[in-house]
Write a protein that binds this DNA or RNA. Structure first.
Lengths: 153, 153
DNA sequence: CTTCAATTAATCGTGCACGATTGAAAGTAG
DNA sequence: CTACTTTCAATCGTGCACGATTAATTGAAG
């Protein structure tokens, strides 16, 4: 039935939309003490993984572009988490480095999140399969949406 | 391991966040022809289900509050999808009714989404289990977050 | 009836997301 | 070297989300 397809897609999309908002609120509890948003936490994670990335590289990691990242990184620079400077070898690019504050905060921030997960009794182990399943859906949607833009070339 | 908990939570949250954005983009393809956003489509679905709901009732259905719905409904009224009027029996409340346009568009809009699902070869049946799993996670997070606010009372 | 509490939509300010465009810089071809 | 193309970050405008507050209306208690 075609209508069943729509109903399933609607329910699935709505659940994912709701869960995303709820997860963001959940993280916000731990992050608000540091004055961080979830998106800003994602940037920190990318830089903890590898410091000195360009805006473009961070965007590749988080699936975000300059229209979102430029103001976001500026706010994080103002807050003292990182520095922004034009790359020496290619002045079009922007290189982002963590400040000492940004580096040293990794432990405390992740501990705050860990406490939030523990204290709230979020049985996260239960969702090991969920992570795989949702990742597959994510991949399917991404290829579906990016293949389309390739068609136009 | 505590760090494993964080890593799983981070991956899960990031996947849900990405999937939500991708799903919104996917729906946007079908909805843009009608000048609708995904959030506005959710409001239409709630009103197709039951017309004449109050802002509060719509908010209960979509987990949104007046700070989001008031401007959203105003834009939809401006676009001709619905009408907003104060309830007769309780002038604090706002009753929302579909216009003829809003009612008649249900078929075409859902057909556009169905075509989008079909044409893009999104094998949605494959995600029957995913819907259940993500719904459980959604419920867990919601009770977790709303029980907390009850503690403060 | 009067006072106080509760409910409701609206308002305000901030921070994403994102489609679209711009301008600068770098790369490429002739 | 010059002209053209590509690749960047930045900018612009719109529409959510959402914490916090406000003002109007209703309900409840005395």
């Amino acid at each position: 039935m075609q209508t069943d397809h729509i109903r399933l897609a609607n329910q699935l999309c709505f659940s994912v939309y709701n869960t995303s908002r709820l997860f963001t609120k959940f993280y916000q509890r731990a992050l608000s003490d540091f004055g961080l948003t979830y998106s800003q936490y994602l940037v920190l994670m990318a830089l903890w993984e590898e410091d000195g990335q360009t805006l473009h590289q961070i965007g590749d990691a988080l699936y975000l572009e300059s229209n979102t990242l430029t103001p976001l990184l500026r706010r994080m620079e103002d807050a003292g988490w990182l520095t922004r400077e034009k790359s020496a070898h290619d002045r079009r690019q922007l290189t982002v480095h963590l400040t000492a504050e940004g580096q040293e905060s990794q432990g405390p921030i992740q501990q705050a999140i860990a406490e939030c997960i523990g204290k709230e009794h979020l049985d996260i182990d239960q969702y090991n399969d969920t992570q795989e399943t949702i990742s597959q859906l994510e991949t399917a949607l991404r290829t579906l949406l990016t293949d389309e833009s390739k068609m136009e070339e």
